[in-house]
């Protein structure tokens, strides 16, 4: 079984995690830029973080046979801090990097006017740099936050197929499905979404445009929950091809739209039914 985790914060994880992930079949990942628990207070700490996402972390992942790509953005929480706003001016440099396959995580945290402005500006950057966008939905006031998110996406002019809306649940899945955006679900030990609930959502809404991630970070989370979800799908009667579609081909299709996804190293190892799906890069 091959698994692509389209959203995981490896900066916060250990080499033990990389070893266990590789052993479980998780050989491709995307690490979105987000906040680090401790708020940052200067632009310099962002650039060091972005450098790590296009430098050190891919190197670390490669030691364990895991292919690492990143998404880059000013996250919604820190968009509210005027000391961090200048990060926006530096984003174009990072959005040209080979390993950057989307703008993200953008979106809302507390739905402030500052967040509105930064969200819209970064969707415009996604269009300009011809990159897809990874959109975080707020954990508080989620349903209304998701509606507002979809309105901003529609207004920005970015193609809905270039947008994934993340951290969805039973309440928000329908809204996003109707918008034409991709749908992502973060499987957590006991909060956002669980493997059995995910299986039910896939039964009800189908596999098209569906992404499953662990969103594992510095909080209580588990980088192997993508694999647990794959196993739960099989146990519930989904086929191996269904699992491969949701947990490999879908994220490859979504991030492949950047033209920069390069899985040549890991796809040599993991081909499905003899077929390799190479997209972007060389």
């Amino acid at each position: 079984m091959r698994i692509f985790d389209p959203h995981i914060h490896m900066t916060s994880r250990t080499t033990d995690d990389y070893e266990r992930m590789a052993a479980a079949g998780i050989t491709a990942i995307v690490e979105p830029a987000f906040w680090l628990g401790q708020p940052r207070t200067s632009v310099g700490s962002f650039t060091d973080y972005f450098d790590s996402l296009v430098g050190w972390e891919p190197f670390r992942a490669s030691q364990f046979g895991v292919r690492h790509h990143a998404t880059i953005a000013l996250n919604p929480k820190e968009a509210n801090d005027p000391r961090c706003r200048e990060v926006l001016d530096l984003l174009p440099r990072y959005l040209e990097k080979d390993g950057v396959v989307a703008v993200g995580e953008v979106g809302y945290d507390s739905m402030t006017p500052e967040e509105d402005e930064v969200f819209a500006a970064q969707l415009a950057l996604a269009v300009e740099h011809e990159l897809p966008a990874l959109v975080h939905t707020p954990h508080r006031d989620k349903a209304r936050g998701t509606e507002r998110t979809l309105a901003v996406v529609a207004e920005s002019g970015i193609e809905p197929g270039h947008v994934v809306v993340d951290h969805l649940n039973e309440v928000t899945v329908g809204l996003v499905r109707d918008s034409g955006c991709w749908l992502a679900f973060s499987i957590y030990p006991d909060t956002k979404m669980s493997p059995p609930r995910m299986v039910n959502i896939l039964r009800e809404y189908g596999l098209e445009r569906m992404l499953v991630n662990s969103a594992a970070d510095w909080g209580r989370s588990d980088p192997l929950l993508t694999r647990t979800t794959a196993d739960a799908m099989l146990a519930a009667g989904f086929s191996e091809d269904d699992v491969d579609r949701v947990l490999w081909r879908n994220p490859v299709d979504f991030y492949g739209q950047s033209g920069r996804l390069d899985l040549s190293d890991v796809e040599k190892e993991a081909t499905f039914a003899g077929n390799s799906i190479l997209r972007g890069g060389s």
Binding site: P92, R93, E96, K97, D98, G259, R260, G281, S282
Partner: peptide, 15 residues
């Protein structure tokens, strides 16, 4: 050069 330099791998390959 700021925008051309990072694009080089995508344009000329990495062989």
């Amino acid at each position: 050069i700021g925008r051309l330099f990072p694009a080089a791998g995508r344009r000329v390959g990495r062989d």
